[in-house]
């Protein structure tokens, strides 16, 4: 464990806590893409298949459980909770995310560390996570003004993978046989997708104005 990865994990956890706060405090999921939440739940379920077979550390196990439970609870809440689901922007959240699923799985079959069930699903979760934010970014562009909690949610979600890139650079230079090309290249793509969001987020923070993504 290094400071970059720990900071990244804490930012990831913060993004989930901010999203939970928004949904439970405002009893509303307006501006949140259910499709992105569904993709994230799949990312964690596909990535943490080794939850019960490989014990890394207490921290690792607890965080995996937190990510799986929180992501599935958010999807369940946006679909089933009578109050919350009324505020879901169904007509705006129209990104065809099944293509992202199919493309990620196809790529995982072609590019993986080992052609085994667990490694293919791990690579699938890495590729899917890189593109999972797309429905959410499209929804933000369509829904015009973005409320603070939603903006903070997306910001921390983007920042966490940027810290993981620093973590991979650090591990590359400090550990002998460290090579995580799949995660690293995918992480670069993932963080690049947030580039324009970060720019408009910075502008809104600098000018102290409402965050607005151009359509």
């Amino acid at each position: 464990m290094n400071i970059f990865r720990f900071a990244g994990d804490m930012m990831h956890l913060t993004s989930i806590l901010v999203l939970l706060l928004k949904i439970y405090a405002t009893k509303s999921c307006s501006g949140i893409s259910l499709k992105t939440q569904e993709l994230y739940a799949l990312v964690f379920l596909a990535r943490y298949l080794d939850l019960f077979t490989d014990f890394i550390s207490v921290y690792n196990t607890i965080m995996k459980l937190v990510f799986i439970v929180s992501s599935t609870a958010i999807v369940w809440c946006m679909k089933r909770d009578r109050v919350v689901r009324r505020s879901y922007d169904k007509q705006l959240d129209t990104f065809r995310h099944y293509f992202l699923l199919a493309a990620s799985f196809a790529l995982a079959l072609l590019v993986n560390e080992k052609f085994t069930f667990q490694e293919i699903f791990w690579a699938f979760s890495i590729y899917l996570e890189a593109v999972a934010i797309l429905p959410q970014l499209v929804l933000l562009q369509r829904s015009g003004n973005v409320d603070n909690l939603t903006g903070q949610y997306v910001f921390f979600l983007g920042a966490y993978r940027a810290f993981y890139i620093l973590n991979w650079i650090y591990r590359y230079f400090t550990e002998t046989h460290f090579s995580r090309w799949i995660a690293c290249i995918s992480g670069l793509v993932q963080t690049a997708l947030y580039a324009d969001f970060f720019y408009y987020y910075y502008i809104s923070w600098k000018n102290n104005t409402k965050l607005k993504l151009p359509a």
């Binding site: 990865r5 994990d9 990831h12 990535r47 080794d50 490989d54 890394i56 690792n60 965080m63 995996k64 990510f67 560390e113 080992k114 791990w122 993981y164 973590n167 046989h177 995580r180 995660a183």
Partner: peptide, 10 residues
Amino acid sequence: RSTEDLKDEL
């Protein structure tokens, strides 16, 4: 599974 290919990251 050998230790080095364990996925120790979240």
